[in-house]
Structure formats: structure tokens, C-alpha cells
């Protein structure tokens, strides 16, 4: 287990380094001069030169790369050109919106999806199975921005129970924050839950066909007992895989939902930074999100090993 962990951590660090290299190279080979991209075509030569100096564009490539990696490690990412605040502060403040929102949506989605998947699998080909699968089909088919608007229409416009959008800020206390998170959480979680419930169901049904389920039944365990005690853990591998993918998506891919609900999250920041050509922010956000995906995959790998002893590698018990 220790060897496995060491190997995984080594791979993690290596992948993160490769990611910084890829992001750096991609932005480097983009045509055009970053300073003029940021300032627009009408910029004065002096302003351009000043920005180039500030960005360190006059230094050799490898110096800039190593400086950037060092900056990433120390967290000193420079000043945003459009917002005029340190990039790290900017990203951090947006993360306090996006990360809890992603976590809430993932939790809600899991709490809905896994029990529904189990319910469907244990009632395979019975009315309950069809009911769960129909709801899941609808959940997959509905685009989440439209679903978000329907939620706003019902809870904010008609019932006037919840704010239609905006973020109260953590200073306002946990109550208002949760209120502003509630609708986006539901809008994000339900479509994800629809997919996750399907994955849970099909993974369980597949495992229930395995020989060792028959062995367990031969020991006198009930159908339900075999499902809970023998099938579930074996079915978790695909479920955890999908959850990892969904969590990565929730961290970065929530641009639409954040826009619908006017939430100052990472997705909106990327959107704004790109449209304002704030390359410093874009570069650091991209590597942050790439890093997040890599770290999530790392944790998914660790979970695999927790779930299935065969994946721990080595025979040390």
C-alpha cells in the first residue's frame, strides 16, 4: 500500500508539472504579443513596452516558465490587468463561491442518485425500475440552464421564497449564503444525479450477474442482503469514476449556471477574463482547473484502491 501511494504521488506531481508546461507552451505559441492582445490594437508603444516589462515578456522563455512555476508554488501570481487586484486573491474569492457550490451539488446529486440507482437495480424490470429510469431520462434530456430558469420562475418569481440570483457573500452569514446556493445547487445536482443513478443501476445489475453473488446466495443470504453486502462495493468503481468527472465539471463547467444566477464563481471569472483578454488571469485559472482535475483524478485513483484490494498493487498485506 505504501509503495502504491508513493507511486501515485510521484505520478501526481509529474502530471501537474506536465500540465504547467502544456499550458505555458500553448499560451506561448498563440499568435500575437500578449501585451498587445491585452491592450488592444490602438495601444501606444510606450504603454505596450511598459506592460511587456511588467509581464516579463522580454526575458527568455525558460526563465519565464520557471518563474511562473515558482510563482504558482508560492501563490504569488501577479496583478490582474482588468481587476487591478492580485490574481491569487481574485481566484481565491471566486473559489469560495464555486467550491462550496460544487461540493453541495455533488453531495445532493450523490444522495439522490445512489439510493435511486439501488432502488432501480433491486427492482429490476419492475414498475419502480421503470419509474426511476423515466425520471432519469427526463433529467438527462432537460438542459440545466432551462431547468434553472424554471426553478427561478417557480421559487423566486411566483412563490417569492428564494432570491433569483446573486451571492450574499460569506460575511452575511451562513443562512443567506445557503439561500443563494439552494437553487443553483438543485439546478446543477439533478441532471448530474440523473446520470449517476443510471450508472449506479447498470453497475449494480452487472455485478449482480457475477458468480460470487450466486455463491453468496448459496450461503443463505437474501437477494437484498447480497446486493448490499456483496454487490454494492463492487459496483462502486464506475460510480466513483463518474463522480470524479462530474466534480471536475462542477468546479469549472458551471459557467452557464453561474451566469443564470449571477454568482461570482470561477466559471464566470473565466468567461469575463477571456472576454476582457486578461491573460494573466486566464493562464492561472486554466492551470488551476487543470490542476484540480488532476488532483480529483488522483483522489479517484486512491478511492479505487480503497474499494478494490486488487488495485492496490503489490502483495503486501
Amino acid at each position: 500500500m505504501r509503495i502504491f501511494l508513493a507511486k501515485r504521488v510521484f505520478t501526481l506531481i509529474l502530471t501537474l508539472l506536465v500540465a504547467t508546461l502544456v499550458v505555458f507552451v500553448v499560451l506561448e505559441i498563440l499568435p500575437g504579443d500578449p501585451a498587445s492582445v491585452m491592450l488592444g490594437i490602438n495601444a501606444e508603444t510606450e504603454t505596450l513596452n511598459a506592460l511587456r516589462e511588467e509581464l516579463g515578456l522580454n526575458r527568455p522563455v525558460w526563465v519565464r516558465y520557471t518563474h511562473w512555476v515558482a510563482d504558482l508554488i508560492t501563490g504569488n501570481l501577479g496583478i490582474s490587468y482588468t481587476y487591478d487586484v492580485p490574481v491569487s486573491e481574485l481566484i481565491l474569492s471566486r473559489l469560495t463561491v464555486s467550491f462550496p457550490l460544487a461540493l453541495l451539488a455533488m453531495t445532493l446529486s450523490t444522495l439522490i442518485a445512489i439510493p435511486l440507482g439501488i432502488l432501480a437495480a433491486s427492482n429490476h424490470n419492475k414498475p419502480m425500475d421503470f419509474l426511476v429510469m423515466s425520471f432519469s431520462q427526463i433529467g438527462i434530456a432537460i438542459p440545466n440552464f432551462w431547468f434553472a430558469m424554471l426553478l427561478t420562475l417557480l421559487f423566486s418569481v411566483t412563490l417569492r421564497l428564494l432570491p433569483a440570483g446573486g451571492f450574499a457573500g460569506w460575511d452575511a452569514g451562513i443562512g443567506p449564503v445557503l439561500k443563494s446556493f439552494l437553487l443553483p445547487t438543485i439546478a446543477l445536482a439533478l441532471p448530474q444525479a440523473a446520470i449517476l443513478a443510471r450508472v449506479t443501476r447498470s453497475a449494480l445489475l452487472e455485478v449482480l450477474q457475477e458468480d460470487f453473488i450466486r455463491t453468496a446466495r448459496a450461503k443463505g443470504i437474501t437477494n437484498q442482503g447480497a446486493l448490499w453486502k456483496h454487490a454494492l462495493r463492487n459496483a462502486l468503481i464506475p460510480v466513483v469514476t463518474i463522480m470524479g468527472l462530474q466534480f471536475s465539471f462542477l468546479l469549472a463547467g458551471t459557467i452557464i449556471i453561474e451566469n443564470v444566477f449571477y454568482l461570482p464563481g470561477i466559471g464566470r471569472l473565466i468567461f469575463q477574463a477571456i472576454s476582457q483578454r486578461d491573460l494573466i488571469v486566464v493562464k492561472n485559472l486554466v492551470i488551476l482547473l487543470a490542476g484540480a482535475v488532476i488532483v480529483i483524478n488522483f483522489m479517484v485513483d486512491l478511492l479505487y484502491a480503497v474499494i478494490d484490494p486488487r488495485l492496490r498493487g503489490g502483495q503486501d498485506v
Binding site: 460470487f212 455463491t215 474499494i307 478494490d308
Partner: peptide
């Protein structure tokens, strides 16, 4: 009634 199955490779739960 106890039963022994043919395939010892797949008849045991791999995660227990």
C-alpha cells in the same frame, strides 16, 4: 445444503 461451485476464480467476492 452447502454448495461448491466450479469456478474458484470468480465464485469468491474479490473485495472481501
Amino acid at each position: 445444503i452447502g454448495m461448491i461451485f466450479q469456478e474458484p476464480m470468480t465464485a469468491l467476492n474479490p473485495v472481501k
